Simulated assay, not measured.
Amino acid sequence: MSETLYTPLPDRAVIRVSGPDRISFLQGLVSNDIEKITADHSGYGALLTPQGKFLFDFFIYQQDQDSLLIDCERGEDGARAAEFYKKLRMYKLRAKVELTDVTESYDVITVFGDGALTALNLPDTAGATAPLADGIKAVDPRLSLIGARVLLPKNELAQMAAIGATESDAATYHQRRVTLGLPNGSEEMEIDRAILLENGFEELGGVDFKKGCYMGQELTARTKYRGLVRKRLLPITIIGPAPETGTAIMNGDKEAGIIRSIHGNGGLALIRLERIGNDAELTAGDAKITVHVPDWVNLPEPAA
């Protein structure tokens, strides 16, 4: 794809976290190192249950010297964002932090295509960040191949035309996203069950193993250091009638995975790694399934 495309993402919400304790407050809650978020670098992370299971994923940007912006999943009628906001307030306690839902003040935009980073004058470095008019532009902190994310104040979408980008639709973006193997919150990660390392968070820069304690850290660290990753969220191609999301992928009479999302003739599936060898013939319903391993994915070495 040679041109630069952009797509507003109305399924995203924006929460501002301000106040002198904003960094220490988030540092004890989320999987990534909040101290690394600067005007030049944005990040990706997650909030987990105390048992280390997925609740929310999000992008974090520095708005100014006193505030951070969190770009998170909005959910139907804003339900997911409201739940996330409520969870943050629950943990706020006496921290000198102010939480504000500023969703109505911002457009969250994805800019993608081969020329996206050049058009935005951004380097090919995940998380690299700079101002754009009165907003923020950042190379996607997960993977630069997907392009960039932009937060603009409402009614400033003309900035996209100014960089030479053409409006696309969300379907095109999500097809690109699943081809690259990038999760999209609860669409593909099961709430209160998914484990970060099964969903690529280590390779995608969404977890920091040196930052110290945060909620759910113990399971995440144990999963890494004991080599307990046996499943991975991976891209699939579907040949034949598309099955429903949640359909089991079979290798003969053995379950090899579960389809988490479908976009076009592809999608993402949580795959049991021991059941996708070179001779695997995978099916889901009446469709043939092919599993792909993106270059950025580091799979464990097969057992001898």
Rank of each mutant, 00 (worst) to 15 (best):
M1T: 00
S2T: 06
T4D: 04
P10K: 12
V14E: 07
S18H: 09
G19F: 10
P20E: 15
P20V: 01
D21H: 09
I23H: 00
S24C: 02
L26Q: 02
G28M: 11
V30G: 02
V30N: 06
S31F: 00
E35W: 01
E35A: 06
I37W: 06
G45M: 08
A46N: 03
A46T: 01
L48S: 08
Q51E: 14
Q51K: 13
G52N: 10
L55V: 11
Y61C: 04
L68Q: 13
L68S: 06
C72D: 06
G75K: 13
G75C: 12
R80M: 06
L88A: 05
L88I: 07
K92V: 07
E98D: 15
T103N: 01
Y106D: 00
D107F: 02
V111Q: 09
G113C: 03
G113N: 05
D114Q: 11
G115E: 10
L117I: 02
L120W: 08
L120T: 09
A126T: 10
G127W: 03
A128S: 10
A128W: 01
A133S: 15
A133P: 02
A138L: 07
P141F: 02
S144R: 05
S144T: 07
I146L: 05
P153N: 08
P153Q: 07
M160V: 00
M160D: 15
T166I: 15
E167K: 13
A170G: 01
A171P: 03
T172D: 12
T172V: 15
R176K: 15
R176P: 00
V178R: 02
L180Y: 05
L180D: 10
L182D: 12
G185I: 06
G185T: 03
S186W: 04
E190I: 05
I191W: 01
D192S: 07
G200Y: 04
F201A: 05
E202L: 06
E203N: 03
L204T: 09
K210N: 13
K211V: 02
G212K: 05
C213D: 12
C213M: 07
G216D: 09
L219A: 08
T220R: 00
R222P: 08
K224H: 13
Y225M: 03
G227M: 14
R230S: 05
I236D: 12
T237F: 04
I239H: 12
P241W: 02
P243L: 13
P243S: 14
P243F: 14
G246A: 08
T247N: 11
T247D: 15
G252T: 15
D253P: 01
E255R: 13
R260V: 06
L268A: 08
A269P: 09
T283D: 02
G285S: 06
K288F: 05
P294E: 15
E301Y: 08
P302G: 12
A303C: 11
